[in-house]
Design a protein around this nucleic acid. Structure first.
Length: 110
DNA sequence: ACTTTGACGACTG
DNA sequence: GCAGTCGCCAAAG
């Protein structure tokens, strides 16, 4: 059993392209349902090692990528997701019903 | 070594 | 239904 953050990274790397996941969902998949903050930290740590643009928030998706240091991330994220086929509604939210990653049997932690 | 933060979520009141 | 608080782990100050 590795550290929770390790598992989170593993989960993040398994996110299929064209799909989005919420922090809570990633945390849940990683085995720590109440620790979405860990996902946040993990994204900051790994940064470019994980598809951070596919990680969004329940509120309206665009929360992802908005770091207090680089607020421009949200724009980049939206562009990247649209490039992958994810559509944003006028509220700037992603259609979780269609693009929300349905983690069927993805977790295979090594 | 201790305290505070960190792109959030869920529960309780 | 809304607002406030707690939770989780790690890294930086």
């Amino acid at each position: 059993m590795k550290s929770p953050s390790e598992r989170i990274v593993a989960v993040l790397r398994r996110i299929p392209k064209g799909k989005v996941v919420t922090y809570g969902q990633v945390a849940e998949l990683a085995g720590v349902p109440r620790a979405p903050r860990l996902v946040v930290q993990t994204l900051h740590r790994c940064g470019d090692e994980v598809p951070w643009h596919r990680v969004i928030g329940k509120r309206g998706a665009s929360v992802g990528g908005v770091s207090i240091k680089d607020p421009l991330g949200a724009k980049v994220q939206r562009r990247l997701l649209e490039k992958e086929g994810v559509k944003f509604d006028r509220a700037g939210g992603v259609d979780l019903d269609r693009f929300g990653w349905h983690a069927t049997n993805s977790i295979t932690i090594r």
